[in-house]
């Protein structure tokens, strides 16, 4: 479950996009229609990140022993 999600979801990208959206919304030159679209996108991203954080597990695998 988590590995499939991890392969398609990248925290760092999602967080980066979310921060860009916030910066856009806080900037002075903002189009209201675009702002509403971006707000929707941002809310979805925030939800996705929270869900992944709650569900994703760490994986550990020993690949080599005493090289």
């Amino acid at each position: 479950m988590t590995s499939k999600q991890n392969s398609t979801f990248k925290y760092s990208q999602a967080i980066k996009e979310l921060q860009e959206i916030t910066e856009y919304l806080e900037s002075s030159d903002v189009d209201l229609d675009e702002a509403i679209d971006k707000f929707d996108r941002g809310s979805k991203l925030a939800l996705q990140i929270e869900e992944h954080l709650a569900k994703a597990e760490n994986k550990i695998k020993t690949i080599k022993s005493n090289l």
Partner: peptide, 16 residues
């Protein structure tokens, strides 16, 4: 790591 985070892939090499 498990307590703080989720979704990290760790490859381990066994050494002395």
């Amino acid at each position: 790591i498990d307590d703080r985070w989720g979704g990290l892939e760790i490859d381990h090499i066994q050494v002395q």
